[in-house]
């Protein structure tokens, strides 16, 4: 029997023995179980006065959730990438550098058009899916605990954190290499600002979800 199962069995037995949730929590904490493990074990049973304890409904891994959140997070990735790309292309056109290759203007113009085209499609899809997912969560508490949403949110946090750190490293390297022009700094700042905004927003979202459990 796994540790998870043993604590679940203990919670069931304790509830059957009419022990309050606070007493169970206190006992488990004294025994060395973490808050997270205790919360998870207690969340296995519905908060209603019934004997034997009724198992709480568990969040399901549904194909519908996979579709909704995969589309939403993919649209978010496209929106972030092409927003950065668009700003970088604008900076290339506005602040030409003497060290640029001769075809930079053409490449920047093409990148800019491609970024506009992508944003016109991806940004509304993200906003619409985000609103749709949010309204589902508001209506149904189970949707809030969707494992797909949870994993994709943590994946987003991981990716944005890695990009943000990589951006900081790139910025320092640029300074050391002597290539830190104003355009370079503005480009790095754009990457940092976009990834930080996404990271902070989804970190708050995670905290919101944790507070709900």
């Amino acid at each position: 029997m796994q540790a998870k199962d043993s604590v679940r069995q203990f919670v069931r037995d304790a509830l059957l023995a009419d022990r309050s949730r606070e007493e169970i929590r206190k006992g488990l904490r004294q025994a060395g179980w973490s808050t997270n493990e205790i919360d998870n074990a207690l969340a296995q049973y519905a908060r209603i006065d019934f004997s034997p304890p009724i198992p709480a409904p568990r969040p399901q891994f549904t194909a519908r959730d996979v579709f909704i959140y995969a589309v939403q997070f993919t649209a978010l990735a496209y929106t972030a990438i092409y927003l950065i790309n668009l700003v970088h292309a604008l900076l290339d056109l506005w602040m030409p550098d003497a060290a640029d290759f001769p075809d930079l203007e053409l490449r920047a113009t093409m990148r800019l058009r491609w970024a506009i085209a992508t944003l016109v499609v991806a940004a509304p899809v993200y906003l619409w899916m985000s609103r749709f997912a949010h309204s589902r969560v508001e209506k149904n508490a189970m949707s809030r605990r969707s494992p797909v949403r949870k994993y994709l949110t943590y994946l987003t946090l991981f990716v944005t954190a890695m990009i943000f750190l990589g951006d900081a490293i790139f910025l320092i390297y640029g300074f050391l290499e002597g290539s830190a022009t104003l355009r370079f700094v503005l480009k790095a700042t754009t990457v940092g600002a976009v990834t930080l905004a996404i990271f902070v927003f989804y970190l708050r979202d995670v905290e919101y979800l944790r507070g709900d459990q």
Partner: peptide, 15 residues
């Protein structure tokens, strides 16, 4: 997101 994307697109088209 809406504001940033809209401003960026308008600046792009203007440029």
């Amino acid at each position: 997101v809406s504001a940033a994307v809209s401003v960026a697109i308008l600046l792009g088209i203007f440029t």
